[in-house]
Simulated scan of single mutants.
Amino acid sequence: MTMDLFTLDAEVRTDLGKGASRRLRHANKVPAIVYGAGKEPVSITLAHNKVFRAQEEEAFYSHVLTLNIGKEAVEVVIKDMQRHPFKPQIMHMDFLRVDAKKELNTLVPLHFINEDVVAKTGAIVAHSATEIEVACLPADLPEFIEVDVKDLEIGQTIHLSDIVLPKGVTSVELAKGEDHDQAVVTASAPKGGSDDNGAADEEADSEETTEE
């Protein structure tokens, strides 16, 4: 992904309301708002084609972005994106200003590696989460977090506390206590596996009874 997809040009908008937003969308623009960092919210517009191209990249959602608003470059992260129910159209975006010296909370995608190794054992790998909320300084924000499942065996589960987070990054959920140590990925036996074993056991019991 090229760095220019992390930088978006924006214009301040003063014409607000549903009618104004509808006109902007017809003009291939995306209405948006920037807030946070103790400053007043600012309503802006972005070029839809540039935003749509950028949002196709996974890193766009977990990266500190730069909004060029007039002559000011504002560092932000995406907090919300509203899409059209069926059209390939972005309806509205919310951006949160970031302060280089203050921690931010945001979602980061999980990348599961070595699933093919587990699959060779006959296990089925099921994801309970595809992203986790982390807290860190903007400079430490990872684009993704790897979860290595190569040692996962049937019946085992990897929890949040088992994930090795990058330096300077903490789990928001784990900070709430052990009760929030949610499952992330589990290896289970193929469907029908337990039934087959049960049938085999019943057959063995039947044979033993006959022999007696």
Rank of each mutant, 00 (worst) to 15 (best):
Leu5Gln: 14
Phe6Ile: 02
Phe6Ala: 14
Phe6Pro: 02
Phe6Val: 07
Thr7Leu: 09
Thr7Met: 10
Thr7Trp: 01
Leu8Trp: 07
Asp9Tyr: 09
Ala10Pro: 06
Glu11Phe: 04
Glu11Asn: 14
Arg13His: 12
Arg13Gly: 02
Thr14His: 14
Asp15Trp: 09
Asp15Glu: 15
Asp15Thr: 12
Gly17Lys: 11
Gly17Tyr: 04
Gly17Ser: 12
Lys18Cys: 05
Lys18Asn: 13
Ala20Gln: 01
Ser21Pro: 03
Ser21Trp: 02
Arg22Val: 06
Arg22Leu: 08
Arg23Glu: 05
Leu24Pro: 02
Leu24Asp: 04
Leu24Ala: 10
Leu24Lys: 08
Arg25Thr: 06
His26Phe: 13
His26Leu: 15
Asn28Gly: 09
Asn28Thr: 13
Lys29Asn: 08
Lys29Cys: 05
Val30Thr: 08
Val30Leu: 05
Pro31Tyr: 03
Pro31Met: 05
Pro31Ile: 02
Ala32His: 05
Ala32Thr: 03
Ile33Met: 04
Ile33Arg: 01
Val34Tyr: 02
Tyr35Ala: 01
Gly36Cys: 01
Gly36Ser: 09
Gly36Phe: 03
Ala37Thr: 09
Gly38Thr: 01
Gly38Arg: 06
Lys39Arg: 14
Lys39His: 11
Glu40Cys: 00
Glu40Trp: 06
Pro41Glu: 03
Val42Gly: 10
Val42Met: 11
Ser43His: 15
Thr45Glu: 14
Thr45Met: 05
His48Ile: 02
Lys50Ser: 11
Lys50Pro: 00
Phe52Gln: 13
Arg53Gly: 01
Arg53Ile: 11
Ala54Asp: 05
Ala54Leu: 04
Ala54Thr: 06
Ala54Gln: 08
Gln55Asn: 14
Gln55Val: 15
Glu56Ser: 12
Glu56Pro: 00
Glu57Thr: 07
Glu57Asn: 08
Glu58Ser: 15
Glu58Ile: 15
Glu58Pro: 07
Ala59Gln: 09
Phe60Glu: 09
Ser62Ala: 12
His63Leu: 00
His63Tyr: 00
Val64Ser: 03
Val64Leu: 03
Val64Asp: 07
Thr66His: 12
Leu67Arg: 11
Leu67Asp: 09
Ile69Tyr: 00
